[in-house]
C-alpha cells in the first residue's frame, strides 16, 4: 500500500505560446480528487486534458491558478506523482528491467530498493520478459512495461494519459480490468485522461466532461457503482447515453 495523494486545483488557466499569439487550452478548471480516489477526465481529442495532466505532474507551470497535492503547492515533478503516456516511451537501449529501474536509478535508490523492480514486473506479468528489449514487445506488453516503470516509484498519484489509447480492443479491455484491480489493491489516487466514454465509466468513481478547446468542465458525473464493473450494467449504459448527449452526440447514443 502507498500513501494516496489528494488533489486540489483552482482556477487553472493555461495556453500554448505559438508564434503570433497564445492558444488558450484550459479555462478556469477546478478539480478536487480525494486521496485514493479515481477520476476520469473525458473530452474530445486535443481539447487540453493531457495538458492538465502535465500541469499536475509538474512538468510545466500553469499560466494562472493553483495546484495543490496534499495541501502543498505543485512546483515541479515529483516521483510521488508519476505520469504514464499514451506511448510507452520506453528507452529502446534499455532492457525491460532496466527501463523499469529508471526511477530508482534517477534517485539513487537502485542499490537499496532494487528488489522493487522485479516486484513491479511481476505485478504487471512481465517478469519473464525482463531481459527483452522494447522492440521485441507487443504494444500491450510495452505499455505494461511502462506501467511497471511507474509503479516502481510507489506513486501516491498515478496520472494516466490515454495509456490504452493505442492498444487493440481485446488488450485494451484486459488492461482496463487490470488497472482497476491494481488501483483497488494498491490504493493510489488515479487521474485518467480518456476520450472513450465507456472506459471512463468502467474505471472511475467520477467523470469530468470537458468541452472542446479551450477546455472547460461542462459536467460532472458520479458513477456510484461497485468495482469491478461490467460494461453491460444497465446503470452504466444509461450514464453512457447521458454523457454522449452532453458531448452533443445524440445519434451515437
Amino acid at each position: 500500500m502507498v500513501n494516496p495523494i489528494g488533489l486540489r486545483l483552482r482556477g487553472i488557466h493555461h495556453a500554448f505560446a505559438l508564434k503570433e499569439q497564445d492558444l488558450p487550452v484550459l479555462e478556469d478548471v477546478d478539480l478536487d480528487v480525494r486521496p485514493g480516489g479515481s477520476v476520469a477526465l473525458l473530452g474530445p481529442s486535443g481539447c487540453g486534458k493531457s495538458t492538465l495532466l502535465r500541469l499536475v505532474a509538474g512538468l510545466e507551470p500553469p499560466r494562472r491558478g493553483t495546484l495543490e497535492a496534499d495541501g502543498a503547492p505543485i512546483t515541479g515533478p515529483d516521483p510521488s506523482r508519476v505520469l504514464m503516456f499514451q506511448d510507452p516511451t520506453l528507452y529502446p537501449w534499455r532492457s525491460v528491467r532496466a527501463n523499469a529501474a529508471l526511477g530508482l536509478e534517477a534517485r539513487g535508490l537502485i542499490r537499496t530498493e532494487g528488489g522493487r523492480v522485479d516486484d513491479a514486473l511481476r505485478l504487471v506479468g512481465l517478469h519473464e520478459f525482463a531481459e527483452a528489449y522494447p522492440h521485441q514487445l507487443s504494444g500491450g506488453m510495452a505499455q505494461r512495461a511502462a506501467l511497471a516503470r511507474a509503479l516502481v516509484n510507489r506513486p501516491g498519484l498515478l496520472l494516466l494519459d490515454e495509456p490504452l489509447g493505442k492498444l487493440d480492443s481485446l488488450t485494451r479491455l484486459k488492461m482496463q480490468e487490470e488497472l482497476v484491480a491494481l488501483w483497488q489493491r494498491e490504493g493510489f489516487t488515479t487521474l485518467l485522461v480518456t476520450h472513450d466514454v465507456e472506459e471512463a465509466l468502467l474505471m472511475a468513481e467520477r467523470v469530468l466532461v470537458f468541452s472542446p478547446r479551450p477546455a472547460r468542465v461542462v459536467s460532472e458525473i458520479a458513477v456510484d457503482r461497485p468495482f469491478p464493473r461490467h460494461r453491460d450494467d444497465p446503470h452504466l449504459v444509461a450514464l453512457r447515453r447521458e454523457v454522449l448527449e452532453t458531448l452533443g452526440l445524440r445519434e451515437a447514443a
Binding site: T89, L102, A106
Partner: peptide, 12 residues
Amino acid sequence: SLYDVARTMGAR
C-alpha cells in the same frame, strides 16, 4: 517525451 519520463520520476 524521453526527458519527461525521467523528469517525472525525479531525474536531475
